[in-house]
């Protein structure tokens, strides 16, 4: 053994044993309660949209991998998570071609043009939803989407109703109803309890970081409370904001996406808090009914900036005061 070479490589030096596949599988498991509830509530069309969104997202991934001559990596289930999240954010009555266009935008423009897994600066699903909202807002309007359905609760999208009619509509939405999914909305975004259970599962398994989730929810509650305390007549109470629209899905599943969120603790707290803060600003002052998508895209954008707040490397602590 005369030519033994010492190989020097970059950190990390240990591996938790997890793979992308396991992480994404756990994401899918965590999404199951909310998705099942959506299928149960909105019926077969919801199942159709969810399966179409998931399968078309995987198909776009295969096509893009072939075109860009990369290894076909659908087995890691990354695109399945993107597709399933996309399906869970849209109404059950969305036409098939809108779903396919949306997953195309999400997977191709949201993920592949940035170089595939780990390269995306934004959450791919949000890119898809945001571009659909600019193009076909009518198909994402939850009030008109469910006109043919019979519900035993107020069939008004809570946030849109709040925007157009003011706080007088708040009496028709109890916090319990919002938490138990008795509201109209995206297929998988209405069942608050299911989302919370799935999100906590992910945190306990260590796939998402509690710092972002807690800071995000704190941002919403603190900002909304400030507005509510100052003008209880014009602004909705904090719990209404927390349990309506995409808020919970955003907090537990969208803001925490790996490649578009910070890696250090203080940046994570700042990142999450700003996200919650922006949501309430958009809802209370801006023109959009639900600011979740906009605000998460914005914090994705500032992620590289705030991630430079990091602990000092050991052994380099020379200060020139």
């Amino acid at each position: 053994m005369t030519n033994t070479k010492l190989i020097v490589s970059h950190a990390p030096f240990w591996h938790s044993g997890d793979s992308l596949f396991q992480q994404n599988l756990n994401f899918l498991i965590a999404l199951v309660p909310a998705a099942l509830f959506g299928i149960f509530k909105f019926g077969a069309p919801a199942l159709g949209v969810l399966t179409l969104a998931t399968s078309s997202a995987m198909l776009w991934e295969v096509i893009m991998a072939i075109i860009s001559k990369q290894k076909i990596a659908i087995a890691d289930m990354e695109s399945a998570v993107i597709g399933l999240l996309f399906g869970m954010m849209v109404p059950a009555t969305m036409p098939w071609w809108v779903v396919i266009t949306g997953t195309f935008v999400a997977v191709v423009l949201g993920k592949y043009v940035f170089g595939g897994i780990g390269g995306n600066p934004f959450h791919p699903t949000l890119v898809g939803i945001a571009i659909l909202m600019m193009s076909w807002p009518a198909f994402l309007d939850f009030d008109t989407a469910y006109v043919s359905y019979q519900f035993d609760f107020t069939a008004l999208a809570p946030l849109a109703a709040l925007k157009s009619q003011g706080t007088s509509v708040l009496s028709s939405f109890s916090t319990y109803d919002l938490l138990m999914g008795n509201e109209v909305g995206g297929i998988g975004s209405t069942f608050g309890l299911g989302i919370i259970i799935g999100g906590i599962y992910l945190i306990l398994r260590g796939y998402t970081r509690w710092e972002i989730v807690v800071a995000f929810i704190a941002g919403i509650l603190i900002t909304a409370t400030l507005f509510y305390v100052l003008h209880p007549d014009t602004y909705a109470p904090p719990l209404f904001h927390l349990f309506s629209g995409y808020t919970l899905l955003g907090a537990f599943f969208l803001a925490v996406e790996n490649s578009s969120s910070p890696v250090h603790r203080i940046p994570m707290l700042v990142y999450g808090f700003l996200g919650g803060f922006m949501i309430i600003l958009v809802r209370n002052i801006g023109i959009y009914p639900d600011g979740t998508i906009l605000s998460i895209l914005l914090i994705n954008l500032i992620n590289p900036l705030i991630d430079v707040i990091k602990p000092k490397a050991l052994g380099k602590g020379v200060s020139h005061a």
């Binding site: 043009v113 600019m134 193009s135």
Partner: peptide, 26 residues
Amino acid sequence: YIPFQFMVEAPGAFIGLGLMLCLMNL
């Protein structure tokens, strides 16, 4: 046909140009 309005908005120009550049390189 319900137009995909995004493409005639300003960001659509950037994405359209990007995709065409990509196609040309391909």
